[in-house]
């Protein structure tokens, strides 16, 4: 199976962001891979290996990011985890929106013909949660969003995807090629069944660590540099940022003496009950 995984770098969610005018102050930002994208990489690796036979690889995992040159660092970390190849499409965050991202991945998919496109369910910076849906629409491929489990079925021709929906788990069968976006539980020990790894194999919770060997090997793996132009992307940005401001500082809390006082304050001052 050939899998294309999308990966975006986002500001460290633990870090307090600094703003410069209407933009993020990039020089003061710690970047890291969007968590859901890291999970998508882990998912792709689990789908293309036999963990019961020394992680023997069976398939290809290509990770693509659209971003500035520095994103190489995050791409290398996915190569260190075990991905085979990376593609870096030059672009600045300020020039991108979900529309351009979806159109770019569409062009790449048409060019490279993966069997599956895996994406994080959303990026932790803008939290738009729409690139995957748009992409599936443009490609005319089936989609399964918020995947918490994936099982390869029909001799590798389809996936059974357990989706995390409000009411519980919805199970959906998608034939390949397809677009799947992943949710938190996809990295649980038994979330993925690929038909090769023993069904009862328990992975460690969470995305894998890169081994030191993997990190050194990542240096030699290819990163293809390309541009929106070279891929023939003509889409225009549809979303404009008018203002960007930090949330207001939280006011200091107060201490109450009793439950009665709490209820009274919630009612008369906070006006929430």
């Amino acid at each position: 199976m050939k899998i294309l995984v999308t990966a975006k770098r986002v500001p460290d969610p633990e870090q307090k962001v600094k703003l410069k005018g209407n933009e993020l102050d990039q020089s003061a930002t710690n970047w890291q891979l969007n968590q859901f994208d890291e999970y998508a990489v882990e998912t792709a690796l689990r789908l293309t290996e036999n963990a019961s036979a020394g992680n023997a690889r069976d398939g290809e995992v290509v990770v693509v990011s659209i971003g500035p040159k520095d994103v190489q660092q995050q791409l290398r970390s996915t190569l260190a985890m075990g991905a085979d190849k990376a593609i870096l499409v030059a672009g600045e965050d300020a020039e991108l929106d979900a529309e351009i991202v979806a159109r770019t991945i569409q062009k790449l998919a048409e060019r490279d013909k993966p069997d599956l496109i895996l994406m994080g369910k959303l990026a932790a910076d803008s939290e738009s949660n729409d690139a995957g849906q748009r992409l599936a629409g443009y490609l005319g491929w089936p989609q399964a969003t918020f995947a918490g489990t994936i099982e390869v079925v029909d001799g590798g021709k389809a996936l059974l995807v357990g989706r995390e929906v409000d009411a519980g788990i919805e199970t959906k069968k998608v034939t390949l090629p397809a677009v799947v976006t992943v949710d938190l539980r996809i990295v649980a020990p038994h979330a993925i069944k690929n038909g090769k790894t023993a069904k009862d194999h328990a992975y460690a919770e969470g995305p894998r660590y890169a081994s030191l060997k993997g990190i050194m090997a990542a240096k030699k793996k290819p990163i293809e540099d390309t541009t929106l132009q070279a891929l023939g992307v003509t889409a225009q940005k549809r979303i404009k940022t008018t203002t960007l401001e930090a949330p207001p500082a939280r006011k200091a809390g107060i201490k109450v003496q009793s439950v009665e006082e709490l209820v009274q304050k919630l009612h008369s001052e906070a006006k929430v009950i």
């Binding site: 660092q73 290398r76 260190a80 030191l212 990190i215 990542a218």
Partner: peptide, 10 residues
């Protein structure tokens, strides 16, 4: 160097 930075972050 980038590979050492990667060793560090991992």
């Amino acid at each position: 160097p980038q590979d050492i930075e990667l060793l560090r972050t991992q």
